[in-house]
């Protein structure tokens, strides 16, 4: 009799068929987070602080404690939770608009304070929920509903590289950028999330995992098309890899 070797983590609701679009990797990341929480046996300690945007739809998926913070303020809310409840495993779950636009100050400040929580940052280069507006990580030349002729540096500046930006700070412990566009990268993303959560359990301070994903709907393509766009356009702009890992120096 065959043995069940893969099924969706129980950290995701059994009947969760959320509002994410076909091919959207938010739900992929939800699975990976759930798998890591199960493997570290910390499901009953987990508290996710969701931002506003498609990331907020995870309340349909996360079967563990989660709250929604004001747009951009997840890192501030997480500071409040973690500092008053160090025993909880606290992580924020934010999109690029939430984390790198309206919430950039909160993100940089929490990182600079070395807050001992983890950040899961979904970078899909666009505002998803609100219908495709330009985000801080929108690529040069990429069209958006608020950059109808494409992002132009002289008018809209350049994509923000959050990991590299935070790498200028002294306090952050671990910064890695991964993607979920192929099986290898999915496994690397899971490993990175696990490392970030383990850092927190070990009290090592601020960890952030930036996950380059797709947005078929607002990129004007389909699921498989978004994989190509990630490969050809997103990853050259947002190179994958470990930007900082202080555990190497420990």
């Amino acid at each position: 009799m065959e043995e069940l070797v893969y099924t969706r983590t129980k950290a995701v609701f059994e009947n969760a068929v959320s509002g994410f679009c076909p091919g959207c990797m938010h739900s992929t990341v939800a699975k990976l987070i759930g798998e890591v929480l199960e493997e570290l046996d910390i499901l009953d300690k987990a508290v996710c602080v969701k931002g506003i945007g498609c990331c907020g739809l995870q309340s349909n998926y996360f079967a563990f404690d989660n709250i929604t913070a004001a747009h951009g303020r997840a890192c501030a809310a997480a500071t409040g939770i973690k500092r008053t409840n160090p025993a909880s495993l606290v992580f924020t779950y934010q999109g690029d608009g939430d984390l790198a636009s309206i919430g950039l100050a909160e993100t940089v400040s929490a990182a600079n304070r070395g807050e001992n929580f983890s950040v899961i940052f979904i970078n899909n280069g666009i505002y998803g929920m609100t219908g495709g507006q330009m985000a801080p990580t929108t690529l040069v030349g990429m069209k958006a509903s608020t950059a109808p002729w494409g992002r132009k540096p002289e008018e809209h500046g350049y994509p923000i590289h959050v990991c590299e930006l935070l790498n200028e700070l002294t306090a952050p412990y671990y910064l890695e950028r991964t993607s979920c566009n192929n099986p290898t990268n999915v496994r690397k993303t899971k490993k990175a999330i696990k490392k970030a959560f383990q850092n927190q359990l070990d009290g090592k301070g601020f960890s952030l995992v930036e996950i380059v994903t797709g947005c078929p709907t607002n990129w004007g393509t389909d699921a498989l098309g978004s994989l190509d766009f990630i490969e050809e356009k997103m990853l050259p702009e947002f190179p994958l890899g470990v930007i900082r890992d202080k555990s190497k120096e420990d």
Binding site: R73, A77, G80, I81, T84, A105, E106
Partner: peptide, 25 residues
């Protein structure tokens, strides 16, 4: 716990977080 937030905007959300986790804030 005392935190000087980076702004009033951040500070109120820190209080929101602490309150969400049951601490008088």
């Amino acid at each position: 716990v005392f935190v000087q937030g980076e702004s009033e905007v951040a500070s109120i959300s820190m209080v929101y977080g602490a309150g969400c986790a049951g601490t008088r804030a």
